[in-house]
C-alpha cells in the first residue's frame, strides 16, 4: 500500500479511536456542566459517581447473568436502566446529605466544593473498604465483533459508545432548552432567589439536575466498563479530573461546550499519542488546552457571565 494510503487509514482509525475515547470525557463532562450550570458548584465527586456507576453496572450485570439464562443483550438492556436509576440515587444522596445542608446554612461555595472533593474520596475509599482492592473484570454482555473497512477497524461497541454519547448530548440539550424543567434549571442558574416566586420548588429542580448528571455518568461508567473491562476504585479519579478540565475548556455551564470539550480532549490525547511520542501525550494535550483557555478564558462556547447577588 502506498505511504499516503497508510497515513490516511491511520488518521481515520485514530479519528474513530478519538471519538470513542472522547465520548467518555463528554458524557462525564456533561454531568459536571449540568451541576455547575445550575448551582455554580463544581461537583468534584462526579468522577467517582461515574466509578460507582461502573461498579453498579458490574454487580447488576453479573447478578443477572448468574441468576437466569438470559441472553447477553437482554441483560444489557435491563442493566442500563437499573444502573442509571441506582447511580442517580447515589448522586441524589450526595446532594441530600452533603450539599443541601450546607446550602441551607448559606455556606460559602468553597466549602461546598471541598465537601464534594471529600465525598469523592469517601466514595473511592468506601469502595476500597467494601470490595477490597482487587480489580474486577466486567462480563462480556454482547460479543464484540470487529468490522474491517479496508485497514480501518471498527467494533460494534465502538459505534455504540459514540452513538450513545451523541444521543445523550441531544437528549440533554433538548431537556435543557425545550422542556419546562430545563427552563427552570436555566432560571435557577441565573437567579435562584426569584425561582420560588414563580411557584417552582428549587430543590426539586436541583435534585432533577443531579439525577440527570448522575445517570449519564452511570451510562459512561457502564460503557467504559464494557470497553475497558477492568474496574478499580480509582478509575474515576483521573478520568473525572480530565473530564472536568474538558468541561471548563468547552465553556462550563454550556451543554454544547462540555460535549465539544470532551471530544476535543479525546482527540488531542489520541492524536498526540498516535503521531508524536506517546510520553508527551498529557504534556502536549494540556498545553493545548491551556492555550485555548488563554485565548478564550470563558471556554470555547462559554460567555462571560456577571452574577449580581
Amino acid at each position: 500500500m502506498p505511504w499516503g494510503g497508510a497515513l490516511l487509514a491511520s488518521i481515520l482509525q485514530n479519528t474513530l479511536n478519538a471519538l470513542q475515547w472522547g465520548s467518555f470525557y463528554s458524557l462525564i463532562a456533561l454531568g459536571y456542566c449540568l451541576v455547575y450550570g445550575v448551582l455554580l458548584l463544581i461537583n468534584f465527586a462526579h468522577g467517582d459517581v461515574y466509578m460507582v456507576g461502573a461498579y453498579i453496572a458490574f454487580f447488576v450485570a453479573t447478578f443477572l447473568l448468574a441468576s437466569g439464562g438470559l441472553p447477553g443483550w437482554v441483560v444489557l438492556a435491563v442493566t442500563v436502566p437499573i444502573t442509571m436509576v441506582l447511580t442517580a440515587a447515589v448522586g441524589v444522596t450526595l446532594e441530600r446529605v452533603a450539599y443541601r445542608p450546607l446550602r441551607r446554612k448559606g455556606a460559602h461555595r468553597l466549602y461546598v466544593v471541598v465537601t464534594a472533593l471529600m465525598c469523592g474520596i469517601i466514595l473511592e475509599n468506601g469502595n476500597l473498604a467494601l470490595l477490597g482492592a482487587a480489580s474486577r473484570a466486567f462480563p462480556e454482555l454482547v460479543t464484540t465483533t470487529v468490522f474491517s473497512l479496508g485497514d480501518v477497524k471498527l467494533t460494534n461497541l465502538k459505534v455504540a459508545v459514540i452513538v450513545v454519547a451523541i444521543g445523550s448530548f441531544l437528549i440533554l440539550e433538548t431537556i435543557v432548552s425545550r422542556t419546562k424543567i430545563g427552563m427552570a434549571m436555566r432560571a435557577l442558574s441565573y437567579d435562584r432567589f426569584a425561582l420560588p416566586l414563580m411557584g417552582i420548588p428549587p430543590d426539586t429542580v436541583i435534585v432533577f439536575t443531579f439525577v440527570l448528571g448522575s445517570s449519564f455518568a452511570a451510562l459512561a461508567g457502564l460503557l467504559f466498563a464494557m470497553s475497558y473491562p477492568v474496574l478499580d476504585p480509582y478509575m474515576g479519579a483521573m478520568v473525572g479530573w480530565k473530564a472536568f478540565i474538558a468541561a471548563v475548556v468547552g465553556g462550563i455551564g454550556e451543554i454544547r461546550g462540555a460535549f465539544a470539550g470532551g471530544f476535543l480532549l479525546g482527540f488531542v490525547e489520541i492524536m498526540v499519542a498516535a503521531f508524536l511520542p506517546s510520553t508527551f501525550r498529557d504534556l502536549i494535550a494540556f498545553t493545548i488546552l491551556l492555550f485555548i483557555l488563554w485565548m478564550k478564558p470563558t471556554g470555547l462556547f462559554g460567555v462571560a457571565r456577571f452574577q449580581k447577588i
Binding site: 487509514a9 491511520s10 482509525q13 485514530n14 477497524k153 475497558y228 480509582y234 511520542p277 506517546s278 501525550r281
Partner: peptide, 20 residues
C-alpha cells in the same frame, strides 16, 4: 516501540500504530 503511562486505559492510538 510504543509507550503509555501508568493508569492509562486506552491504548488505541499506540495499537493502531503497532497493527500498521
Amino acid at each position: 516501540f510504543e509507550t503509555f503511562t501508568t493508569k492509562d486505559k486506552d491504548f488505541s492510538a499506540q495499537l493502531t500504530k503497532i497493527v500498521a
